[in-house]
């Protein structure tokens, strides 16, 4: 474990806590893409298949359980909680996210570290996570105004993978045989997808104005 990876995990956890706060405090999920949340649930289930077979550390197991449980709870809330589901922007959240699932799985069948079920599902979860934010960014473009908690949620979600990139650079420099090309290239693509959001987020923060994404 290094400081970059710890910062990344804590930022990722923070993004989930901010989203849970928004949904719990406002009893609303307006501005949140359910499709992106469903993709994240698939990402965590597919990535943590080793939850019961490989014990790394208490921290590792604890965080995996938190990520799986929170992503499933958020999807459940957005689908079945009477108050929350009413505020879902169904007509704005129209990205065909199943294409992302199919494409990521197809890519994982071609590009993986080992041709085993666990490795293919791991690569699939890495590719899917890189594009999982797309329905959310599309929804933001359509809904125009972004409430503070949603903006902070997306900011922390984007920042966490940027910390992971620093982690991979650090590990590459300090650990002789460390290579995680699939995760690293995918992580760079994932972070790049947030580039314009980060730009408008920074502008709104600098001008102390409401975050607006150009339609």
């Amino acid at each position: 474990m290094n400081i970059f990876r710890l910062a990344g995990d804590m930022t990722h956890l923070l993004s989930i806590l901010v989203l849970l706060l928004k949904i719990y405090a406002t009893k609303s999920c307006s501005g949140i893409s359910r499709k992106t949340q469903e993709l994240y649930a698939i990402v965590f289930v597919a990535r943590y298949l080793d939850l019961f077979t490989d014990f790394i550390s208490v921290y590792n197991t604890f965080m995996k359980v938190v990520f799986i449980a929170s992503s499933l709870a958020i999807v459940w809330c957005m689908r079945f909680h009477p108050m929350v589901r009413r505020s879902y922007d169904r007509e704005l959240d129209t990205f065909r996210h199943y294409f992302l699932v199919g494409a990521s799985f197809a890519l994982a069948l071609i590009l993986h570290e080992k041709f085993t079920v666990q490795e293919i599902f791991w690569a699939f979860s890495i590719y899917l996570e890189a594009v999982a934010i797309l329905p959310q960014l599309v929804l933001l473009q359509r809904s125009g105004n972004v409430d503070n908690l949603t903006g902070q949620y997306i900011f922390f979600l984007g920042a966490y993978r940027a910390f992971y990139i620093l982690n991979w650079i650090y590990r590459y420099l300090t650990e002789p045989h460390f290579t995680r090309w699939i995760a690293c290239v995918s992580g760079v693509v994932q972070t790049a997808l947030y580039a314009d959001f980060f730009y408008y987020y920074f502008i709104s923060w600098k001008n102390n104005s409401k975050l607006k994404l150009p339609a």
Binding site: D9, I56, N60, W122, A183
Partner: peptide
């Protein structure tokens, strides 16, 4: 499983 197969990152 070999050591390097185990994914120690989240």
């Amino acid at each position: 499983k070999e050591a390097d197969d185990v994914k120690d990152e989240l």
